[in-house]
Amino acid sequence: MADKVTQGPLEMFGTDALVDEESLAIRDTVRRFVRDRIRPEIAEWYETGTMPVRELAKELGSLGVMGMHLTGYDCAGTSATAYGLACLELEAGDSGLRSLVSVQGSLAMFAIWKHGSEEQKQEWLPRMAAGEAVGCFGLTEPDFGSNPAGMRTAARRDGDDWVLSGNKMWITNGSVADVAVVWARTDDGIRGFVVPTDTPGFSAPEIKKKMSLRASVTSELVLDDVRLPAAAMLPGAKGLSGPLSCLNEARFGIVFGALGAARDCLERTIAYAGERDIFDKPLSAYQITQTKLADMTLELGKGMLLALHLGRLKDAGELRPEQVSLGKLNNVRESIAIARECRTLLGAAGITLEYPVMRHANNLESVLTYEGTSEVHQLVIGQALTGEAAFR
């Protein structure tokens, strides 16, 4: 009997033809890293709620993915599309891994790169690009997630110094970070500060007992009269536009990243269905199985086409925030639906860590709500369509 001819879910869409060779080479490098370094360990990390962040940061720095889409200061200076494809491969390993890279590059590093002084850039960006210094981003507070304008963390002047007091919540990398970019209310509006984590009064207790993003360090930031020199303030950011510009960078990575989790679920499910015999024939030979696989492939491919289009817009300098919301809303929503549907095809095997689908589904529950909930992105899109802000 001749071998069966099969295609991968994204091969059916021919999306590689839409990407330049350099970006594909970067993608393949990250894919090999995930295959060789992450896949053998990720189930254990997830089960134990640990990840060797500092070790991985150096390895990812050597790979060139930390702040890879930024220019100068030892950053790789890749295209936005290449960065997106790297995020996809990282999240195919685990959402926690992509979160580590997103927070480092698109939030902490981008904030310093975009809004920082030359001294701040020189001090932190080369070390962060190498993974020798880990960063975190302190915006969300216990009572203010979707409404960052209500933040209570405050910075007051004391002579030439700034003194910061307050709490931040759900901060990726917080407990292992060397530097935190913290946003606080001042008499001059919301401003950002570069805070070395060894500054007296700064602490970052880790948040435990998570059911999602278990292979990721999540922390609270406590600022108890943290005294900083005047030079710690980000000079180029004033008001909410500063942190929101950083969030748009991170959301762009999620547009691609979530698809990596969905692709991994779908590929593993297709392989399982071909091996699992039900009533004397493979699960993959049943019509209901094939219709599920076809529908999931369609949504994955449509999401990939959307992501690549947004990548082209970003590389051309034409990407608007509401377009990022389109991508984040659609691709995370469809990815979590794919993960859940794949779980049904795997049956009881789908709830174990032998397969990645339940892990991805649980992780995507966090991705669905961080960097802007689905509802927030719907309202961003609604405002763009109607001109009316319906957030309040």
Rank of each mutant, 00 (worst) to 15 (best):
Ala294Asn: 08
Glu275Gly: 15
Thr153Val: 12
Thr199Ser: 11
Glu318Pro: 01
Phe279Ala: 13
Thr186Val: 10
Leu293Trp: 10
Leu326Ala: 04
Arg340Leu: 11
Lys121Gln: 13
Ala180Gly: 11
Leu300His: 08
Arg343Leu: 15
Phe33Trp: 10
Leu234Met: 06
Glu47Asp: 14
Trp45Gly: 14
Ala230Ile: 01
Ile112Asp: 04
Glu59His: 09
Pro9Ile: 03
Ala271Gly: 00
Val103Ile: 15
Met151Ala: 07
Phe144Asp: 13
Tyr83His: 15
Leu385Ile: 14
Ala80Gly: 05
Ala92Trp: 02
Leu213Gln: 05
Glu132Cys: 01
Gly166Tyr: 10
Ile270Val: 13
Met109Trp: 09
Phe391Glu: 04
Val367Leu: 13
Glu371Pro: 00
Ser117Gly: 14
Gly138Ala: 12
Cys265Asn: 13
Ser117Arg: 04
Lys302Val: 00
Ile26Glu: 05
Val255Cys: 13
Glu89Arg: 08
Val34Tyr: 06
Trp162Val: 10
Asp143Ala: 14
Arg156Gln: 10
Phe110Trp: 13
Leu24Trp: 05
Val357Asp: 08
Lys208Pro: 03
Glu123Ser: 12
Ile288Leu: 09
Ala111Glu: 07
Lys292Ser: 11
Leu88Arg: 15
Tyr83Thr: 06
Ile38Pro: 02
Asn173Trp: 05
Val357Arg: 01
Thr78Cys: 15
Ser203Leu: 04
Arg98Asp: 09
Ile270Ala: 04
Val181His: 15
Ser374Phe: 02
Lys210Phe: 00
Glu141Asp: 09
Ala250Trp: 13
Val176Lys: 07
Ala285Glu: 13
Val194Pro: 05
Ala232Cys: 07
Arg191Lys: 14
Glu322Ile: 00
Met68Val: 06
Asp280Cys: 10
Val5Gln: 09
Thr352Asn: 06
Phe252Thr: 02
Leu306His: 09
Pro235Phe: 08
Met66His: 14
Leu164Tyr: 10
Arg312Asp: 08
Ala154Ile: 02
Lys58Ser: 03
Val103Met: 04
Leu364Ala: 05
Ser79Leu: 04
Val19Thr: 10
Gly239Asp: 01
Gly67Met: 12
Pro321Arg: 00
Gly387Tyr: 08
Gln290Tyr: 03
Pro196His: 09
Leu100Trp: 03
Trp183Pro: 01
Gly116Leu: 12
Gly311Phe: 09
Ala111Phe: 02
Thr269Trp: 02
Glu91Leu: 08
Asp187Gly: 05
Asp160Ala: 14
Thr172Cys: 11
Ile381Trp: 03
Gly135Ser: 09
Gly303Met: 05
Ile270Lys: 05
Arg27Gln: 15
Cys75Gln: 12
Ala273His: 01
Gly274Leu: 02
